[in-house]
Simulated assay, not measured.
Amino acid sequence: MTHSLNNVTVLGAGVLGGQIAWHSAFKGKQVVVFDLFEEALERCKMAHRQYAAIYQADLGASVDMISETQSRLTYTSKLGEAVSAADLVIEAVPEIPETKTAVYEQMAPLLPAHTLVATNSSTLLPAQFATATGRPEKYCALHFANMIWSMNLAEVMAHASTAEATLREVVRFAIEIGMVPIPIQKEQNGYVLNTWLVPLLSATQSLITNGVSTPEYIDRTYLIANRGCASGPCGLMDIIGMKTCYDVMNYWGNEKQDAQLLSNAAYIKKHFVDKGKLGLQTGEGYYSYPNPAYQQPGFLDVPGLDAVDELVALVCPKALAAAS
Rank of each mutant, 00 (worst) to 15 (best):
H3L: 08
N7P: 02
V8H: 01
G12W: 01
G12T: 01
G18L: 13
W22T: 08
W22P: 06
W22L: 13
K27H: 11
G28P: 05
G28H: 00
K29E: 12
D35L: 05
E39R: 12
K45H: 06
M46H: 10
M46Y: 05
Y55V: 03
L59S: 02
L59E: 07
G60S: 05
S62D: 06
D64L: 11
T69V: 03
Q70G: 02
R72P: 07
Y75V: 13
Y75N: 13
T76K: 02
T76I: 06
K78M: 15
E81K: 13
A86W: 00
V89K: 03
E95P: 05
E98G: 14
V103K: 02
Y104R: 07
M107Y: 04
L111G: 15
N120P: 05
S121H: 00
F129N: 04
T131D: 14
Y139L: 09
I148E: 13
I148S: 09
L153P: 02
E155L: 04
V156R: 01
S161E: 13
F173D: 12
A174D: 02
M179L: 14
I182E: 09
N189R: 05
Y191Q: 14
L193R: 04
L193Q: 09
V198G: 02
S202D: 11
S206W: 08
L207N: 09
I208R: 07
I208A: 10
N210I: 11
V212N: 03
E216N: 09
A225F: 06
K243G: 00
T244H: 09
M249H: 12
W252Y: 11
Q257E: 13
G276Y: 06
L278K: 05
G279K: 01
T282S: 10
E284V: 06
G285P: 12
Y286A: 12
S288C: 09
Y289V: 01
Y289D: 04
P292V: 03
Y294H: 05
Q296R: 01
P297A: 03
D301M: 03
D301S: 10
D306W: 00
D306E: 12
L314C: 15
L320K: 14
A322C: 03
